[in-house]
Design a protein around this nucleic acid. Structure first.
Length: 421
RNA sequence: GGAGAGAUGGCUGAGUGGUUUAAAGCGGCGGAUUGCUAAUCCGUUGUACGGUUGAAAAGCCGUACCGGGGGUUCGAAUCCCCCUCUCUCCGCCA
């Protein structure tokens, strides 16, 4: 969330930023509540100061055997006024906090301004889309004919949007996870984390999934738990309400299932792996000093791209415009893979710098070089999402006979297998 | 799931209603002493919010904070209630 003090002191900037995002926020109402709160706070603090002084005096006079009934009576009345003011102030504070939680981050000044994904900026395209001398099949056709995925049985158990990997399909899924985790831990300096897959509302609020995305998540009401839609939630909230002692930057990687209800997406991409309720994802998370966070964003993006380079898959990188940025992000790059069977670009990674937006919500701080506590900057990006990567591998590496020639980087992870047929 | 014991600053650990603005020690920071190191001595020490001075760095004033939330009281770390977490034992369990 944004700092109330920042909003107060940079009203015009905030107003412009929200406008660029297309966010509808009653900033005037918020600022008025903030003024009311500070006035009430000052009055309450003045009364408390008086009570503290007089109470101390009562103690001393009682010890001296003097009568203090009159003072006690007066302080009782002051106490009642304090209680009333405290109540008002708390209500105002809650209202203000509630509003702040719904205000999205201020985009970075260099983020392209625009209303939706048509205004996103193409950064680069890497690799060439392969020329097929036959009609490329979709991953659904390939996976079914090779027995890699059983869509029918998964749907019978769990409904549409769930998949069951089988045999070499399950093996390929596992190989991809292992390949990516090995690269990020051995070569890119990330520490591997295996976090809980369920967590409570406070953690979801910390990273910004709540309150806005409530209906996109699976819940377990009896226990007050949510299934994570991304490992970002638990890996970031690891440090909730902490002052970090470890030297920055902290770099973590986690491979977890991700659960998404995809509410509102009914009917879209119901076949196949493109949009599913449960998928695996390798997630990269960083906590860094504010001065370095944009350099860290570039290296994060590079780490995610490296996966696709090693797998020799064609992809492009786009920077999201202000209207397309996710709620908590200040700046974000999407990586999209070319899928010949779909004839479409598939988003497999979003690399975002949240600056101190998540850290303020989750109260994650560090000590700067002056020894002062300050909010860290947090970043994350997929490195990369599995289901769609699986799609791209099948569709890009398919042969005329329907078999899959595995990319060389993956062969060791498939026990030496070079081809799925 | 049952029973019991706990939760105090960066750490250890005192504190059962009023100079506690949280003792003491450790650690950290600054300084003194010192050929170097060690030791010793002196000083200092958290977080948040609000106000105020200042160009800023940084001061100063106030309030709150002893796991969280409520209550009693003129006054709560301390008394009462609820909750969470940790530990020990029992039960169950991959």
């Amino acid at each position: 969330m944004l700092d109330m003090k920042y909003i107060r002191e940079h009203e015009a900037d905030v107003r412009a930023a929200l406008d660029h995002r297309g966010a509808d926020v009653d900033l005037d109402g918020l600022l008025e509540k903030d003024r009311e709160r500070r006035a009430g706070l000052q009055e309450g603090e003045r009364l408390k100061s008086e009570r503290n002084t007089v109470s101390k005096e009562i103690g001393l006079r009682k010890k001296a055997g003097e009568d203090t009934d009159q003072q006690q009576q007066r302080m009782r009345e002051v106490g009642e006024r304090i209680a009333a003011l405290d109540g008002q102030n708390r209500a105002l504070e809650e209202e203000i906090a509630g509003i702040l939680l719904t205000i999205p981050n201020v985009p970075h000044k260099d983020a392209p301004v625009g209303p939706d994904d048509t205004a996103n900026r193409l950064i680069r395209t890497v690799g060439e889309a392969r020329e097929f001398e036959f009609e490329p099949k979709t991953h659904v056709e390939l996976a079914e004919s090779l027995g890699l995925i059983d869509f029918t049985r998964a749907a019978r158990m769990s409904g549409a949007g769930f998949v069951l990997f089988k045999g070499l399909g399950a093996r390929l899924e596992r190989a991809l996870m292992q390949f990516m985790l090995d690269m990020h831990t051995r070569e890119h300096g990330y520490t591997e984390i295996a976090p809980p897959l369920l967590c409570h509302a406070e953690a979801m609020t910390g990273t910004g999934q709540l309150p806005k995305m409530a209906e996109d998540m699976y819940t377990i009401p009896e226990d007050g738990l949510y299934l994570i839609p991304t490992a970002e939630v638990t890996v970031t909230n690891m440090y909730r309400e902490e002052i970090l002692q470890d030297p920055l930057p902290i770099r973590h990687v986690a491979c977890t299932p991700c659960f998404r209800r995809e509410a509102g997406a009914a009917g879209r991409e119901t076949r196949g792996l493109i949009r599913v309720h449960q998928f695996d994802k390798v997630e990269l998370v960083k906590f860094v000093e504010p001065e370095t966070s944009y350099a860290e964003l570039e290296s994060l993006l590079g780490h995610a791209e490296e996966v696709l380079k090693r797998l020799e898959l064609p992809y492009r990188v786009r920077e999201l415009c202000t209207g397309d940025l996710s709620f908590a992000a200040a700046r974000c790059y999407d990586i999209e893979l070319w899928a010949p069977g779909q004839q479409a670009w598939l988003e497999v990674s979003s690399c975002s710098n949240f600056e101190d937006f998540q850290a303020r919500r989750a109260r994650i701080r560090y000590r700067n070089d002056k020894g002062k506590t300050a909010f860290v900057h947090s970043l994350n990006g997929s490195g990369v999402a599995l289901a769609r990567l699986f799609v791209a591998i099948l569709e890009n590496y398919q042969m005329a006979d329907g078999s899959i020639a595995l990319p060389p980087a993956l062969v060791p992870y498939m026990g030496g297998l070079e081809r799925i047929e």
